[in-house]
Design a protein around this nucleic acid. Structure first.
Lengths: 268, 268
DNA sequence: TCGGGCTTGTGACAGTCCGTTACCAAATGC
DNA sequence: GCATTTGGTAACGGACTGTCACAAGCCCGA
């Protein structure tokens, strides 16, 4: 659900609120959109709100500074072309005073614009027109870099994945068997199981699994995932010779076959 | 090498094939181009084929749906302006039913078009005329994003196909005989059976089956599908010499004759 | 600092899967 | 009826996978 609220004192400034999702205490990143085109502001506002961000909009430099004074802003999305003070100089200002990450919106990908934008201290730039997904991806990347990753982390409760009576506690990094016994997994085995259980019913290539667990790409003749899978199977499959949970797809990779549910144990 | 092939049943539908590139197991993405302008279809077909994509072309919504039913499509390039059903509603349809990424082609950057397109769920859009390089770049980006998308298996339950007392569990990747015995299928056999059972009472060419199971095109003198069918028949037909479930259509391919129902077992 | 236990990657080997080739039978064309 | 095309499948070999054995790290306490 999205709720709009007009801030009377800020003229055309419009504020969007994201509803809290699931866990109460999620801290969503607060994004400031600076663009003189009202349509873009609206569009971005609705779009980002829908994706769980808090959004404030400003139409020029003055508005922007006011918003920065009034709110705690995690990220600024700044149009290069603005009436009055130019986006570039605003960006330089911002960078001089604070460390708030900035994404610049520029017209059509002229190499020069990008270079200038980045030299002014923008953390990323996006040529208009851009795809919303790309914007999201870049925002996430920038926020991650800024150590301010939106949400997830800060759940008060613990994240637990359940599948066919097993419980995989991501917070405690612990696996409970259907018999409620704690299964002793190594770090690597645990990571692999998480990677699999977070993408159930989906064939994951060795390359993807390596990326998910180690953040690296597959080397030629790399058998490490095979070994890890083999070891994991011996710990969680009833009959490792005929695996039920982790199936092999020849030439493809592995599939986690169980239905996985995401629980949020309230606490402790 | 590029080979063209005219699909007789699809009127002006033309199919382009890319040869495998270097690494054997690489499955090239299959792109569906939907545009009423034949020249554009041809141009894009040749261009994308040259760059290693498999391309199928459709001239309107009807063609598009047929192609989607017949092939495994990784990406749709969709013209905004189409005769009959409009590109926008097609896009909405697509998004409602599947997660196939969509790139929209629009006439010169009309803001409104872009906004509407993106709100309809397109993953990216490209104003005509566009540079081929830009198209390639955006395709790559969209495909990359789609690959690591969580797939959101949607239903929490598991997908099961039933046909004449057999049960084919797609999540568990398991086949149960009418006698409730688990039939031991190899990964390839399983994939083939899924491809067939998902298109019952429909003649599937070897090429289509290869596309659906391996995401690759048929090579000259390719008998692999025949072999796989033969092996599968021996496991699921009462009398493999006179197959009931998988019938041969001489000069056409194979048909899965049984009536298939889609169940969604609630869970576990 | 050293050494032992644990974890993880590599090489090797065996077992399995699957594509190719080849040959034959069935279907089709003439 | 004969030639030609198409499909079924046995057989073979290459490619892929499971896993044993071992080595290289890593952690930790003495």
């Amino acid at each position: 659900m999205v709720r709009y609220k007009f801030l009377r004192d800020h003229g055309c400034d419009r504020k969007y609120f994201a509803t809290m999702n699931t866990a109460g205490a999620v801290t969503t990143a607060h994004v400031l959109v600076v663009d003189d085109d009202r349509e873009i502001r609206d569009l971005l506002g609705r779009f980002l709100t829908k994706h769980g961000y808090r959004v404030t909009a400003a139409q020029d430099g003055k508005d922007m500074h006011r918003a920065l004074a009034d709110w705690h802003i995690d990220l600024v999305i700044l149009d290069l072309m603005l009436p009055g003070e130019d986006g570039l100089s605003l960006c330089r200002d911002l960078r001089a005073k604070s460390q708030i990450p900035v994404i610049m919106l520029t017209m059509m990908g002229e190499e020069t614009d990008r270079i200038i934008g980045l030299e002014m201290g923008a953390d990323d730039y996006l040529p208009k027109p851009f795809s919303p997904r790309e914007l999201l991806a870049r925002m996430k990347a920038v926020l991650r870099r800024a150590q301010c990753a939106p949400a997830v982390q800060a759940k008060s409760g613990r994240k637990v994945l359940s599948f066919s009576s097993w419980r995989l506690d991501l917070g405690l990094r612990r696996l409970e068997s259907p018999q409620r016994l704690i299964v002793d997994l190594s770090a690597g085995e645990f990571d692999l199981l998480v990677a699999l259980a977070e993408h159930p019913q989906r064939v994951l290539s060795r390359d993807q699994l390596l990326d998910l667990t180690h953040g690296r790409a597959e080397a030629p003749f790399d058998r490490s995932i095979d070994m890890q899978v083999s070891r994991l199977r011996h710990k969680i499959e009833t009959n490792p010779k005929e695996p039920e949970l982790i199936k092999t797809v020849r030439g493809g990779g592995y599939v986690f076959t169980a239905v996985v549910t995401h629980d949020e144990t309230a606490d402790t």
